[in-house]
């Protein structure tokens, strides 16, 4: 272990705000991107499914 304590680790030799400010935003961006992509995928499946249900309902009417 190269850090004397966890406090020293979080302080990053006085650069804590800059270092953790970088890594925090990277993490937030990745999480947001994954959430948005999942929502997009679900929406695509939903539209396709609704279209399919409409068409089968249409076929069923005499």
């Amino acid at each position: 272990m190269m850090w004397v304590s966890w406090d020293a680790f979080w302080a990053m030799g006085g650069y804590g705000l800059y270092v953790w400010g970088s890594y925090a935003v990277v993490l937030v961006c990745i999480v947001v991107e994954i959430v948005l992509a999942r929502a997009g995928q679900r929406a695509s499946v939903q539209t396709a499914r609704e279209l399919w249900e409409q068409e089968t309902a249409h076929d069923a009417t005499p």
Binding site: Q41, A48, L51, E55
Partner: peptide, 26 residues
């Protein structure tokens, strides 16, 4: 990983009228 994941949604959306898509989502 993200590009492959996202392209699946785009494929479904653009090909939604195709028979195979309806089999996938049904």
């Amino acid at each position: 990983a993200m590009a492959l994941y996202r392209v699946r949604g785009i494929i479904l959306q653009r090909e939604r009228h195709a028979r195979w898509v309806q089999e996938v989502v049904a």
